[in-house]
Design a protein around this nucleic acid. Structure first.
Lengths: 214, 214
DNA sequence: GTCAACGAATTTGTATACAAGAACATTGAA
DNA sequence: TTCAATGTTCTTGTATACAAATTCGTTGAC
């Protein structure tokens, strides 16, 4: 694995999570190779890695396609994400230090700024930083890795989520409550709030389905 | 990815989780290639995949080594595993059908048989089947995948766990309680029991440390 | 007109060749 | 004796070549 292979992996992964390569799209080896100006070998190695983490589906002798999950599967992924986030929040409530608290509060403030400007893209970006700050505050490196990884994997399915009416305001209000619970050291409350914050339920299930049926 | 590459990936992964390739061991490409009678290309592809899921560490230009985690990291992995198992158990309590229940009871019985024969290896094997039955009963395909994957990853660190005094009997007793909670539909209780069943705590933390310091 | 079968062309999987960087040993000086 | 420098060797990373399989198009029969 050299810089090329690693870079390629990131490039393709980025293309997937940003929607440039939508779910179901075929990833042609020679096409990618010419596009990035390399041979097929590093492209294949990059695809193998993405296949191992579930971002692309490798069909033997039939090429790679961007992983395409059905609604139930995506729902299940959000379920697990909610649980991992809840765990991170609970640990953060008990373990966070001054630096962690400062990072979380700063991220919350940036979320507030974006919400006031009604800038959905900016909020989306700051939201990610906010959640990562909580992962870090959990002081569990492995949990942080798992959360970041799953978060990335869910990005293609969450991109449109925030565009639904009032979602940004509701999300921000929930963020405030979560921060209160964490800084107060209330692990149980932080868990419940985060699980609810992430979980796909009620109306949002319909929203999710809508994003999956283009 | 052909049969060779896929097989190779499984072979090496198996070698890692069975301890044939212990943590920290260098995985030489040509050595593996000659051993399995193939060229370096499929070996590299297999290693890439194992690197992507964290079983081996890929150091650029310096080869691959079996991932070697420090005690804290392993502890964190068990923490996450406990949470995922708890989640699976909770879902299983609410969602299990007749087939699921039968599979869990059958697995429990096999655990009992192994325990009566004092057969640690057999118990280790049946224990895995028991836990997988719970994953399946959660009726969340994604959660099941995550649990199986993390379970495999922890195998090298759990192999010796069951050998400590009385661990098998305690484990079996916990299994019985867990089954009671699941079949009774008591999700909350199943969660608590499973979290405790998996979590590394008290004396077992010392046991874990012991297995990590050879 | 539809479907099946056969053949060409594209594409994947593996091996090999080559280039570049890292590990290692040998030699020399302090 | 120890340490540093340099050259050799070994290993990794990438490209290319070739083999095998799948896909697609064409042709033919019903």
């Amino acid at each position: 694995m050299s810089a090329t292979s690693q870079t390629l992996r990131d490039e393709i992964e980025n293309g997937i999570v940003t929607g440039e390569f939508p779910p179901g799209e075929r990833l042609d080896e020679v096409q990618l190779a010419t596009r990035y100006g390399v041979s097929r070998t590093p492209v294949r190695e990059a695809l193998m890695q993405l296949g191992a983490i579930g971002l692309v589906e490798m069909r033997p002798r039939r090429g790679a396609v961007v992983a395409e999950h059905g609604p139930e599967r995506v729902f299940e992924m959000f379920e697990v994400m909610a649980e991992l986030e809840a765990m991170a929040g609970g640990l953060a409530a008990r373990r966070h230090g001054d630096n962690d608290k400062a990072a979380i509060l700063a991220a919350l403030e940036q979320c507030q700024n974006a919400a006031e400007k009604n800038d959905t893209d900016q909020y989306y970006y700051e939201n990610e930083i906010f959640h990562r700050a909580i992962y870090t505050a959990s002081h569990s490196g492995f949990l942080e890795e798992q959360c970041v990884s799953l978060h990335r994997r869910l990005r293609p399915y969450r991109r449109l989520q925030l565009r639904v009416r009032n979602r940004m305001k509701v999300s921000l209000a929930e963020h405030c409550e979560i921060v209160d619970a964490i800084t107060a050291g209330d692990a149980q409350k932080a868990r419940l709030l985060l699980r609810h914050h992430i979980a796909v339920q009620g109306d949002r299930f319909g929203d999710l389905l809508a994003t999956l049926r283009p």
